[in-house]
């Protein structure tokens, strides 16, 4: 398994820097906007014993350049929503304040994980090469995935910068339709997780740098597993170069972090797309 990833990685590195003869008639650029719904589920046993589920609005922007047999793409996606324990739902903590000198007392209420307490941002750059004249493309991606959420009665975040191997299959169906499916997996990742007690406590360097210093590390596929699957359908509009479409995405990740402290998450999303 590891040698397969090594070969894919080497292939990506070789093809990324190969010179290509200019042929403008075969260059095709697409801009694609997408919007849709995402469900994200996470169980981080270092932060909480509970599975959290969030229903998010998803927006994305893609740029794809198809030049001869090479496919380059830039993709950014933002999802925002709420995140609540799947078992317990919305919870509000109510604290009665101690009465003051005059016997007056208030209560303080905190809603755990209020609306828009979940943010996820991903950014990817991929380079794929067509295999022969088939519909298959193979190559690699560099991607970053950032998560911020309310989790476990506190705030929680996670960042993953990764080098991924990718394979795509695309096929024209008739004159107007196109379907594509892409699978990618992380070969090598740089992760940022909160430290063990979620508190870095480094006074001189500030919290952000403190988290980088205490909670960041390289992870191999043995420690961190990550898969992305993307299935899309596009239909060309009459008398136009533009296309509308549907896109389904699935993501799964698992990080082994101390015994009984795993982080695992997966998401499903469905989006409408519009390609210019």
């Amino acid at each position: 398994m590891n040698s397969f990833f090594t070969k894919l990685l080497a292939f990506f590195l070789c093809t990324s820097f190969q010179a290509i003869a200019q042929d403008n008639t075969l260059i095709k650029n697409d801009f694609r906007l997408s919007t849709g719904y995402e469900n994200f589920r996470i169980l981080d046993l270092n932060a909480s014993p509970l599975l959290y589920s969030s229903n998010n609005l998803l927006v994305g922007l893609d740029f794809e350049r198809n030049k001869k047999r090479y496919l380059w793409s830039l993709n950014g996606e933002l999802s925002v929503g709420n995140s609540q324990s799947k078992k317990h739902g919305v919870r509000t903590a109510v604290f009665p304040d101690k009465p003051n000198l005059y016997g007056e007392a208030d209560t303080t209420e905190y809603e755990l994980n209020p609306f828009l307490s979940f943010v996820r941002f991903t950014f990817n750059f991929s380079a794929l090469k067509q295999i022969g004249h088939s519909g298959f493309f193979v190559g690699g991606k560099i991607g970053n995935h950032f998560n911020f959420s309310g989790l476990g009665a506190d705030s929680w975040f996670f960042n993953q910068l990764s080098l991924q191997a990718a394979v795509r299959y695309q096929k024209e169906i008739g004159i107007n339709s196109k379907i594509s499916a892409e699978l990618s997996t992380s070969a090598f990742s740089y992760l940022l997780r909160q430290p063990y007690t979620l508190d870095p406590s480094l006074p001189d360097i500030g919290y952000f740098k403190a988290y980088l210093q205490t909670g960041s590390f390289f992870a191999s596929p043995n420690d961190f597993q990550h898969f992305n699957f993307n299935l899309s359908y596009q239909y060309s509009l009459k008398n136009s170069k533009n296309k509308i479409g549907l896109q389904y995405q699935f993501m799964w990740m698992n990080h082994s972090f101390l015994e009984n402290r795993n982080l695992s998450a997966y998401s499903n999303s469905l989006s409408l797309t519009y390609t210019l």
Binding site: N39, R41, L45, L51, N268
Partner: peptide, 13 residues
């Protein structure tokens, strides 16, 4: 894939 918590995630306590 949309409803595989037990398969895709670890066990909730």
């Amino acid at each position: 894939l949309t409803s595989c918590d037990k398969v895709l995630l670890n066990e909730e306590v």
